[in-house]
Write a protein that binds this DNA or RNA. Sequence first.
DNA 1: TCTGGGGTCCTAGGACCC
DNA 2: TCTGGGGTCCTAGGACCC
Length: 433
Amino acid sequence: MYALVDGNNFYVSCERVFQPALNSVPVVVLSNNDGCAIARSNEAKALGIAMGAPWFQIKHLEASAGLVALSANFGLYGDMSDRMMRLAAALGPRQEIYSIDESFIDLAGVRGDLVERSHAIRSRILQGTGIPCGIGIGRTKTLAKLANHIAKTAERKPGSYPEQLAQVCNLESLSVPERDAVFAATPVGEVWGVGRQISKKLLTGGVNTVQDLLRLDLATVRRQFSVVLERTVLELRGTPCIELEHMAQAKKEIACTRSFGRPITELHHLNEAVTEFASRAAEKVRKQQGMAAQVLVYIRTSPFRKDDRQYSRSVTVPLRRPSADTAVLVQSALRGLSSIFVEGFRYAKAGVMLLDLQSDRVQQGELDLENDQTEDRSRLMLAMDTLNRRFGKGKVHLASAGLAGNQRTWSMRQERRTPGYTTCWADIPIARA
DNA sequence: TCTGGGGTCCTAGGACCC
DNA sequence: TCTGGGGTCCTAGGACCC
């Protein structure tokens, strides 16, 4: 048995903790560059704002419907997430942190009434962090996800499901007819693993609800779709195919990509951006004690600007040997960039990815033919990471990264950023009696 | 004027091998 | 007219997730 604990409208809820005036007001949190809505309060959803809606298309709701939009404050959300996860972990013996606002809990061996216990944990999270969450319980991770969806929908849209399923939904505690009714009332697209494309194909074949999907023949599913969907169907029937990942796995690739605040035409600006992205990625790979054997760099124009001539290229640069050294990774990325850069385009986005990652503890032995300084270099990187952690991101960087943040022409827009309430001493709220 | 960022897994097809 | 069979490895692209 698994539970899925998931924060409601997570980013919006984080902001509301520190700005209670936002409660019961339609609120969205915008992606980097203030580009599109990546979190919506229930009131914002009720206004018909879709996930990922471009800000410039919904901006008019500010004046007409009192919509409040905030720039994403990921530092705050990460910290709130840690607090929520620690409280959620008390629900069972093992926890898998699946995303910033979701964790699976293995309920094996947990005694007593699971629904009651879940409500208690839910209250503790609400009290301790201010974040409301939903809890779904099922025999497999897919069923727990589905139960979570039902718990949240039952709360948000009264009448959609039986009232007692709101906030906490345990599918195992339902009778067979009750469960069938719930499955028949749930669109197939809500299932974990069924996205837009598969959903479309299923609907064409007359498979509309979870109940329909569950009854499909396994071999047919495999033939017409894939083993992935076959597993999903099995999971819906109660056969576990996806295990809980208790230990966080090392990443297999690490990316740092950004859209620019305005189009870039000049190579030296791209050089700055790519230096910055490769440096960030290098930090991340060192943090997981890894090294990369290949560096991928890409640049592209904006596909949304139909009138612009389009260009999109990427190149993978193999390293002579795996490295986590900022200078090595930046140099490779810049070399790649110069090989794909073409003059005359309005570039909207660039990115660096580190591929073929491996542990830095397994080093390929090698004859020291070129005055090996690996030891010194990794001490230098350690010093750089320590300084940047202590004094702020990017305080120590390579010269090719260019000017300090706010002087760059390509920096992303973030016009509605809230303070670092829990992560920055200067921003800590003051309580008054 | 303005459309995010960071991941994973699977599959198909090509290169290459015997 | 007819042109093997079976395997591995790699890559690109597509689908999904949040």
